[in-house]
């Protein structure tokens, strides 16, 4: 494996992710802006977000100073050296941190001591999955601390919310998550939701939903209807961007599901701020760039 080649292209992936809001997110923000009243605080907030995104791209600066957790989703063909690929990703992260595209944003769990380059035990997060293709598909999601803190997991039935273990109950939970995060999150938000699984797989699967482009509706009909119902209802709450009031509490909701135990029903909700940094690229087995994703 030609590690220098890999490292160079992975560095570029990180750099682009940090500075450039994906087109689907930018377009969703523009659509959200049209939902809000002219001259409202909500519209002012979205204008600031859009101009921030444009300036970040034009000046090649990090879109957001909350670098967050770097999650690399890698789909690799059989036989690829995943240790070498991990090493290249870690080297690229270290370089991007030194160059100011990433903040020094990783600390020891107990002492709080800083890691200078974001490379540490379990940082960055690198997840491998084997795929049928001969190419390597690497997608990077940068998930800020302020968004991660707004994640919520519900065990159903939930008496406090009056939510049963059915579609109506799932809707109740997701709307509660929207309500709870209204003032501290960075809305308009994108929600990744998983129905089922266990406490660990539920959250993991809710985050994988962030790989879908905004505007995508799941092909599972019951969940597709749930996605639309949540989006529609969220507009009636008058939360708006940054909790300033208005219709655009959410840009989109993606809901997936996992099989579960008969007597354990989890709804796991991961929250993503408007500064949704997600990019990807497809590489040949030697690390050559085939094309960009998103």
């Amino acid at each position: 494996m030609r590690t220098t080649y890999w490292e160079k292209n992975l560095y570029e992936l990180i750099r682009r992710t940090s500075i450039s809001l994906p087109t689907d997110v930018e377009n969703a923000l523009k659509r959200a802006r049209r939902l809000e009243a002219a001259g409202s605080s909500a519209q002012w907030a979205i204008d600031s977000m859009l101009s921030n995104a444009q300036q970040a791209r034009a000046e090649e600066r990090p879109l957001c100073s909350d670098t967050g957790t770097l999650i690399f989703y890698c789909r690799v063909p059989a036989g690829i050296d995943t240790n070498a690929l991990s090493a290249s990703i870690r080297a690229a992260v270290a370089r991007a941190t030194r160059d100011g595209y990433l903040r020094q944003n990783t600390v020891d769990a107990i002492s709080g001591a800083k890691y200078r380059t974001n490379v540490a035990h379990a940082s960055p997060v690198i997840l491998f999955q084997h795929g049928a293709r001969k190419t390597v598909d690497v997608r990077l999601v940068m998930k800020s601390a302020s968004s991660e803190n707004e994640g919520r997991q519900y065990s159903l039935p939930n008496n406090e919310l009056g939510a049963g273990a059915d579609l109506e109950g799932f809707r109740e939970c997701i709307l509660d998550a929207v309500l709870q995060s209204q003032t501290n999150g960075g809305g308009p938000a994108i929600l990744g939701v998983c129905i089922g699984g266990d406490r660990a797989t539920g959250y993991a699967h809710s985050k994988i939903q962030f790989l879908h482009k905004l505007g995508y509706t799941t092909r599972v009909k019951a969940l597709g209807r749930l996605e639309n119902a949540v989006l529609r209802d969220s507009r009636k709450l008058d939360i708006g961007p940054m909790g300033l009031g208005g219709k655009s509490a959410l840009l989109d909701v993606h809901i997936g599901s996992l099989s579960r135990l008969p007597s354990s029903v989890f709804v796991s909700v991961s929250y993503m701020c408007w500064a949704f940094r997600r990019r990807g690229a497809v590489f040949g087995p030697g690390g050559g760039l085939k094309h960009w994703l998103y």
Partner: peptide, 30 residues
């Protein structure tokens, strides 16, 4: 800052004649 603050901050603002302003969270470049 960013986001809501609680009743303690409201009391402090009233007592010390202070205002709390919110900018756009995560809009670092602006």
């Amino acid at each position: 800052g960013q986001g809501a603050l609680g009743a303690d901050m409201c009391r402090a603002c009233a007592a010390r004649s202070c205002v709390y302003l919110q900018t756009i969270g995560l809009a670092g470049v602006e």
